[in-house]
Amino acid sequence: MKKRSQDLLARITGFTVLLALVLCGSASAAQAVTLQVLDPRAELMSTPAAPINARLATLEGKKIGILNNTKPGADYFQPYIMQVLKETYPKIEFKAWNVSYNDYPNKAAELKALAAWSDGVIGLLGD
C-alpha cells in the first residue's frame, strides 16, 4: 500500500514536472525574438566567363610567350622557369613582353602581339 502511494506520488510529481517543463517551453517559445535584417552584400557585376584555349599536345618546338607583369618578382623568376623548361624541351622558344599589370586596358597592342607570336603563354608573377 505504502509502495503504491509512493508510486502514485512519483507519477504526480513526474507529471507536474513535465507540465511545468511544457509550460516553460511554451513561455519560451512565446518570448522568442526574431530579428530580420537585410543582406549587406552587393550583387556582383556579371563577367562573361570565357573558356581557355585548347591545350598544346607538347611544348617541344613551341613558342611560349612570357607575360611579365612588371612586378619586381617577375624579373627574378623568369630566367629559371625558362631554364628548366628548356632542359625538358630543348627546341622550345621564349619571348618576353613586359606589360604593366595595372595598365592592361591601354596595352592592347602589346597583348595582341604576344598572343599572335605565342603558341602558349606563361604569366609572371604575383607578387
Binding site: S28, Q31, V33, T34, L35, L38
Partner: peptide, 8 residues
C-alpha cells in the same frame, strides 16, 4: 535578401 535571426 532578408536574413532572419532568432533568440530568446
Amino acid at each position: 535578401a532578408v536574413l532572419t535571426f532568432t533568440g530568446k
